[in-house]
Design a protein around this nucleic acid. Sequence first.
DNA 1: GCAGTTGTCTAGTGAGTTGCTCAAGATTTG
DNA 2: CAAATCTTGAGCAACTCACTAGACAACTGC
Lengths: 146, 146
Amino acid sequence: MKFSKKSEYGLRALLELCETYGGRVLQRHEIAERQNIPVEFLEQILLALKRAGLLASRRGIRGGYSLIKSPEDITLGQVIRILDGPLAPISCVSKTAYQKCSDCPYAAKPSCPLQQAMGEVRDAIANILDHYTLSRFAHTKLAEGS
Amino acid sequence: MKFSKKSEYGLRALLELCETYGGRVLQRHEIAERQNIPVEFLEQILLALKRAGLLASRRGIRGGYSLIKSPEDITLGQVIRILDGPLAPISCVSKTAYQKCSDCPYAAKPSCPLQQAMGEVRDAIANILDHYTLSRFAHTKLAEGS
DNA sequence: GCAGTTGTCTAGTGAGTTGCTCAAGATTTG
DNA sequence: CAAATCTTGAGCAACTCACTAGACAACTGC
């Protein structure tokens, strides 16, 4: 039940890109150095985010990446789904990538206990991550006791 | 962001064991057949649950497994942690298996945006699963619209 | 006390994923 | 054109997942 490094790196990279939003572009090695991420791996992540329409890029000597959408309009849920796939803890409760369980004896019945419970979990996760914007994310200043 | 088959099989096996709670024991092949689970794999799961104190077992010709605790007193969260490890989506927000991130530039600072967000997710998941008892789980009868 | 049936333990294994590296190519600037 | 940068695709070692196999221990009935 973990998120991948890809998501983690992707979110950390977006933190940097938020700071220069509207200003200059950032090059992969700048982001990589500041966030301590292997540069070639980071590249794949930035490209995925670009293909998804969150970033723009320019090649050449003054090239780099920049945020193309406002941090207000990007949620953590979007980013994680791009990099990690669906949020649902089992695929028979996914809204974005539903798949019927093949071997579950409850699949044919009107209700499945697992589906009920995992559906609640899915909704709780999505509820947080789909309402957590990048701007709120980037402006976290004080930790709470945990 | 998925739960493993181990957790899924484990929870499905416990559904069967709930039904005979207080009555007769169930043998691994009975559970395996009814729930459509590979029997040798199921065995590992049952042993893990036994080591964790949820099940008792008896060997020999009239042997089998039985629930040792009341379904009221077992939560899905307990079961999943036994079979799948901690619930936290990244280890720096785990309450049961905390680990400082080694490479994160925020690790030294007073607050980490990722930690804040993932902490909320962790709490939401735990809040559901640690209050979801096996008895409620086993008595799910009607599906909700999803 | 032996045979047969069951659980117990340890190790192994094939397929797939994760996290990362490398190299060749395209595009932009000076 | 040269240098710097992004782009693409392939490759790979390590790990995890889902499962299998086999030797062993204990319980029951005869």
